[in-house]
Write a protein that binds this DNA or RNA. Structure first.
Lengths: 195, 195
DNA sequence: AAATACGCTTGATAAAGATCAATCTACCGG
DNA sequence: CCGGTAGATTGATCTTTATCAAGCGTATTT
């Protein structure tokens, strides 16, 4: 039960609506709790992303590996975020991304079909999805603007502003990759900006 | 009538559903045709984006101006795309962006309230919005990945792949800005890559 | 037709960031 | 307690990209 409370709270908060007892029952029936251990993969490049997962506890990285073997981190995800490559999840095509647990995780996972059939009909859930989609659009737009118009140092400052807990929680080399920098460059940026 | 046909076609294509005569009537009633001349602004930084516009004809750029007076182009929009700063449009807050016509334009515009009240209840329109939202999420994800993991030259190649008509239609300095490069750098990239 | 503005190119130089290599520390796991 | 691994830092060097300045061609305006 406790696992699901986080999901209920989240849906109600974002939608601004209340979940009935029956709604909660439907969510509890179709979302499956799953544990993922640190370093375990939720999704591997080339596989279809069959599930999306609501993160109850823990954190993960979404990344690609280039020809030189370097990781590029597209996304860092923590509690109350959704875990998936949505391109693969929506279209059922092989994913270009890997998703790996950075800490031991507890998630609630579900397939696309079950969402469409049983979950979307819940008004609060559907409303939550709309709000989430708006938030994502806005965040993506901001991050893209930062990418094309700011220097590495400025992007780092923005990250500290927008997601201060990331700095505490994740090692610096992952932060660097998320910002599109090498660990060495981020190290030097931090050194110089503390002047 | 002709103006609206493009919108009808677009909604039906993306939603996979058919618009009834009544549906079309509702759309025709609430979307207002508007002409915007080349160099005219659809939105100015600091203003609230009250309208979203479906582009029937023409093209526009969405951009910011930094402290040094340099433009940074976040988006280039053409026929069958939507024109708006969605952060400002959804939340009714002042926009950080400018949107300016690059060619004479014909759009169909509407306010947020009218969409919510009259347009969203049309099932095909609502379905179209869901598909559009998915497409946008996927495109934003891809562009972000390119930004953090590719060089300028590689990003240019991706642009040629994904939006070949952009190269024909827009001057090179706008393409450069969209890619997060200076016009000089893009000029040199093109020179060297034709080797 | 002249004037002008705009976009593209090229050159010289500077800044930002990547790469490669080495070292240092801290934190496990046996 | 020891050895290993992961992360952070620093230095030297190279590559990529920005900046500033000038010149050129072409379309547009008057």
């Amino acid at each position: 039960m406790d696992n699901f409370q986080a999901l209920f709270d989240y849906v109600q908060k974002l939608s601004g609506q209340t979940l009935s007892v029956e709604d909660k029952q439907i969510l509890t029936t179709h979302f499956k709790p799953k544990k993922i251990r640190k370093r375990q993969y939720f999704l591997q490049e080339g596989d279809v992303c069959k599930y999306t997962g609501f993160i109850v506890k823990g954190a993960a990285k979404t990344f690609t590996v280039d020809e030189k073997g370097h990781e590029h981190i597209l996304k860092l995800s923590v509690e109350n975020w959704w875990l998936a490559d949505f391109e693969s999840f929506y279209k059922l095509i092989p994913s270009r991304f890997n998703i790996e647990a950075l800490e031991d995780m507890e998630i609630l996972q579900i397939t696309h079909n079950l969402v469409e059939e049983f979950i979307k009909p819940i008004p609060a859930f559907s409303a939550m999805q709309n709000v989430l989609s708006q938030n994502n659009t806005i965040a993506a737009q901001k991050r893209m603007q930062n990418a094309i118009s700011l220097t590495g140092e400025e992007r780092f400052q923005e990250l500290i502003n927008d997601y201060p807990h990331f700095i505490q929680r994740f090692p610096q080399n992952l932060i660097a990759s998320y910002l599109g920098l090498t660990p060495e460059t981020l190290s030097r940026i931090r050194k110089n900006s503390s002047r």
